[in-house]
Design a binder for these strands. Sequence first.
DNA 1: TTATGATTCATACGTTCGTTTTAATCATAA
DNA 2: TTATGATTAAAACGAACGTATGAATCATAA
Lengths: 219, 219
Amino acid sequence: MENRTIDTRERILDAGERLFMAHGYEGTSMRQITGEAGVNLAAVNYHFGSKESLMQEVFRRRLDWLNEERMRVLHEMEAEAAGKSLKPSQIVDGFFGTLLRMAGDENRGGMTFLRLLGRTLTEPSEFIRAFLAHEYQAVMDRYKEALFKALPEVPKAEIVWRFHFMLGATSYAIAGTDALRLVTDWQIEDEDSTDRLDRLVPRLMSFLLGGLRAPLPQF
Amino acid sequence: MENRTIDTRERILDAGERLFMAHGYEGTSMRQITGEAGVNLAAVNYHFGSKESLMQEVFRRRLDWLNEERMRVLHEMEAEAAGKSLKPSQIVDGFFGTLLRMAGDENRGGMTFLRLLGRTLTEPSEFIRAFLAHEYQAVMDRYKEALFKALPEVPKAEIVWRFHFMLGATSYAIAGTDALRLVTDWQIEDEDSTDRLDRLVPRLMSFLLGGLRAPLPQF
DNA sequence: TTATGATTCATACGTTCGTTTTAATCATAA
DNA sequence: TTATGATTAAAACGAACGTATGAATCATAA
């Protein structure tokens, strides 16, 4: 009784994760999901109640760990700093680096989940937006606080904007492993895909930090 | 005969633009579109052939101008430079500034189209990805060439990556007029929406240039 | 071994989807 | 004014959608 259920649930979540990533929420049907998972059509409604609930569970399975890990890393860094303010690079790495390193961890969804997350942040159905906002708010607030403290001379509004820009650059960098083709094609020849992921992190970090520390715009 | 057609076509395109922006391609039905446009259900198929063709026409109506304008601006800057290489800030402004300034031009789709474009870049159905890649390729290549020349000491692969990051930050900044709520809420109090748009351009430009010129990552 | 509750299965429900069809209505030129 | 081609309108098409139902099958404990 135990193994059948867990297997079925897990298989559905895996298939949903992959298909939602590839075709979006509306673009993925229950029949595709159950077909790919190799389970009966009714299994989704039996185990999750509805398509919406399945989508939420797909996210929760990964985000719970990610958010806890981000919190843990931040607390750890702050403890180590012993009252002194953190370096912006530490904070950026705690938030975005932790996210990006998920891509290499197949047990935590790997690239698939990251791409799903990236694309979902810009295509939110109402119920997804509400859900993500709820799941993210606390962590986001804590990291913004940390940035405020790390950059006391920068107006808070500017920091919030730049945090937002960083999110966009990161989402897109991940979501666009295919969309990348739109911008690249031949230009990047000499890297296989594992190489590419390993190098993406420092590349993106440099870019994010450069943007975060750029001179303030004069209005 | 003339006026009826044009009005109907235009009304459909406007409604499609708005609804595709708000709910995505799959999330928008023909009945919503024709309902909002105040035309008969069959009108879309009569005037455009299919839902896919309508989507393409929604993009073409705006992208044709945008791409021409980007080319024009680049040529103009290069002519003025008379052989000397352009400054990165000029190139970035030619590409992203031209895009962002569309937001203020309601005759060219304004914010609505920009948000549609932003969200579509990360949620591409196969046919949309192919279409956008085709429409964008030439302009993208020209701007990348310009960046290669402007930054001869930076490896081309790095420039391509950073171009990609800039695209992401911009898409997200635009698409997320609502998703912004996820990151902001109370933090930005003292700006109305026109103010916000006016200030977005220099803010984003600072960020993009900071990222583009950041120190190279050491592997 | 049998009773019980959990899970799987085949099937069907009612809706909505994009598209097509056929007839009505319109604007224009002969 | 009438003929013609373009556009609009109402209705229906088959397919696919998410969901619900009730019987069959399974694992487990008494």
